[in-house]
């Protein structure tokens, strides 16, 4: 009975560990270039500033602004993922998984704030997911051409 209880607890914990590992493996995908910068500039996304603040000062901006920034960027990027240069107008499986992962990590960020623990690791994970989304959108948009310009060049020149 004790053995079965131990197996149940460890297996459940490992299930979530592997789910996170799959998400991290997907996030390691290399893009042919940094597509996210043009999307960030065109849509005035703020997650690179959050990441820079963490890297430079070791801590994110004040908590209410951090959560609002990340949430707004997430909404903007998920909308773009679904609608920008996406013929099927729906998310792929890995995008769905990463959306769920973002929500879970966001929940841990909120929990960490309540428990007065360090929020930096969770915030960095969230910015990594947002960068991936921006890269995917940028890559898709980059394939659509407006005359001699790619869509991202067009957006950059606005």
């Amino acid at each position: 009975m004790f053995m079965a209880a131990l197996i149940l607890i460890l297996s459940t914990a490992l299930f979530f560990f592997y789910l996170q590992a799959v998400c991290q493996k997907i996030l390691r995908r290399q893009f042919s270039q940094e597509f996210f910068q043009s999307i960030v500039n065109a849509n005035r996304l703020e997650f690179p500033c959050v990441r820079k603040a963490i890297e430079d000062f070791g801590s994110p901006v004040e908590y209410p602004r951090l959560t609002l920034t990340l949430k707004c960027d997430f909404l903007a990027l998920t909308y773009l993922l679904k609608n920008a240069a996406n013929v099927n107008q729906r998310y792929s499986y890995e995008e769905r998984l990463l959306i769920v992962y973002f929500k879970l990590v966001f929940a841990t960020l909120v929990t960490r704030h309540w428990l007065k623990l360090r929020e930096t690791p969770a915030a960095l994970k969230l910015t990594a997911i947002l960068e991936y989304f921006a890269n995917v959108v940028g890559e898709r948009v980059n394939t659509v051409r407006f005359g001699n310009l790619t869509a991202s060049d067009y957006l950059m020149n606005l």
């Binding site: 197996i7 297996s11 459940t12 490992l14 299930f15 560990f17 592997y18 789910l19 590992a21 799959v22």
Partner: peptide
Amino acid sequence: MGLQFAGEAA
């Protein structure tokens, strides 16, 4: 594989 084993064992 880990996902499958963890779910099955649990």
